[in-house]
Amino acid sequence: MKTIFQLFVALPLLWTASHVMGQTTTPWQVPAAKKTVKNPVAASAAVVEKGKSLYNTHCKSCHGDPGKNNGLPLQPKPTDPASAQYQAQTDGEMFYKMMTGRGAMPKFADVISETDKWSIIHYVRTFGKKKSSADAIEVEADTLAMPASTLLQAGVPIQLNLHIRERDTMLIATLTTVGASGEPVPAAGVEVAFFVKRYFGDLPLGEGVQRTDVNGWAAVELPVNLPGDTAGMLTLIAKAIINDGIDNVSDTLQAAFGKPLVMRNITEERSLWGRARVAPLYIIITFFGALLIVWGTMGYVVMNVLKINRQEA
């Protein structure tokens, strides 16, 4: 909720800022020395995954999904990273622009580490047409090293089983698929996302992207202090992302690993505003104490007076 609220505040501000500060549509000049800087981080599937995750966190809100041209309508419009115009830049230029920022484009010098910035560039490059160029790398080939991918794309059914290893509260998803002769085979290299069900939406678990290993396992550690329901039950979800989220397979699990939710029912607590049954003790004691003293004294007086006709010995 808070994020949505922040977005509502931030969007008009950004839009205004882009109009006020970004009027200069002059080309963004990058110093020649910076232009030629090479990406020092070696490309790998892990790096690309990391870059994707970072892109989704820091860049997507303005630049949109690469290739879909759905960035924010700012002035000037944030360039789609998959566009030819964008991909025409050198890695050095991209890096420089992320470092310095201009207009509505924030300065990420201190926000994202250098390694991470280079990882984002690796990820963005996967949308470039010139994948075989000097800067781009064979990400596809790398991904293909994971055997499950091919199986999945062929539409072979896949099954996800979620369980908890109680010893160290690891949440484990086991993915199995069907082998060539119909026998169950572990599905390796499949992206698995873990969540805990909350009131509003699902809370993602674990850092970065989890993929199943050769045994078809993906795991994430379950945080110990998550609030559950009154019995401490949590609803855990594992989702295998298949075909870019089109053919997801998921499994849910109820587990008493949360902190039991203690509902504080203030109408049951003693208070001045509550019902008579939950009146503050000091009021009840004062009330009945005073009543006892006054009526007791009156009773004492009456008893004495009623005895006055008795002749004293």
């Binding site: 208070s271 001045l272 505003w273 509550g274 019902r275 008579a276 009146a279 503050p280 009021i283 009330f287």
Partner: peptide, 10 residues
């Protein structure tokens, strides 16, 4: 059903 917290009951 009077409430001891209320001046009405007192």
């Amino acid at each position: 059903h009077g409430r001891f917290q209320s001046p009405i009951v007192w």
